[in-house]
Amino acid sequence: MRNGYTPQHWQVPKPEGWTRTSFHRAALAEWLMDVENGAGNLAARVIVNRIWQHHFGRGIVATPSDFGSQGEPPTHPELLEWLATDLVHHGWRLKRLHKLIMTSAVYMQSSRYDEQRASVDRENHLLWRFSPRRLEAEPIRDAMLAVSGMLDTTMYGPGTLDPNMRRRSIYFFIKRSQLIPMMMLFDWPEHLVGIGQRATTTVAPQALALMNSPQCRQYARGFAERVLAQPESQRLAYAFLAAWTRIPGDEQILQARRFLEEQALRHQQAGNGDGTLAAWTDFCQALISASPFLYVE
């Protein structure tokens, strides 16, 4: 051990009469957080980097599980150091770290593309804009439930394997032989292996799920019912705002109106009632399958 310390240095005394466990894990935690003589500095940099990666899609060190000679050098070493120091000085409070990052100018940049800057830094490693990023599996599903009005916000308690459950995706129980298909499609990692960074793929089975899965259809239907509860003149704006948090240009609005009319007619002809709910369901399904819904910018 460094500085001549032996592991006993971090040993946590057991409570009086305690025999069940050795308290070695408590010692490990002490060592991990010890910035003077333990692994604290590295631990702070690693967690800062992982949270940064979570917000930007790429860490300051692009190899989150490898800060060694095989890893990538940091793109902004001073920033990493500053954030790590701030974290330690403020009691390792992650909420403060999230807030610092998310209220920063760099996080709040637009995603606007600039060919001149791109020609210098095609991959945006220097963060000259906010690279649009696909949501991970959990927030995709959670956001769908939220706009559908079907999200059950109950917290705590045991998870479930039921793919039709309506609580946040964090309440999926993870059973290795029975992973949730919708989550796996959007790059939920194999739970047998530790993964520092998830893949972000764009494949047809994701599209099939968005188009055809009973869940997505159900969410779209719930969303449509919410929209139809609004006064007629406000429905479109309400739908776009709920799904995309913005209202698109006139051209797209016009297109949406035309679709709703024509699709309702088609549904009428196909015998799906007066076609209004069906057309709105189709429209809402398109809204929550579209890139503005799936990508953060």
Binding site: S111, R112, Y113, E115, A118, S131, P132, R134, T200, T202, M211, P248, G249, Q252, Q255, A256, F259, E262, Q263, R266, D282, F283, Q285, A286, L287, S289, A290, S291, P292, Y295, E297
Partner: peptide
């Protein structure tokens, strides 16, 4: 018809944010 609408939505988005092959 629904996919045509969706494609158009996605094309607008891709045009708004060029340079994103994803």
């Amino acid at each position: 018809a629904q996919l045509d609408l969706l494609r158009s939505m996605n094309q607008y988005e891709a045009a708004r944010l060029p340079g994103d092959e994803e």
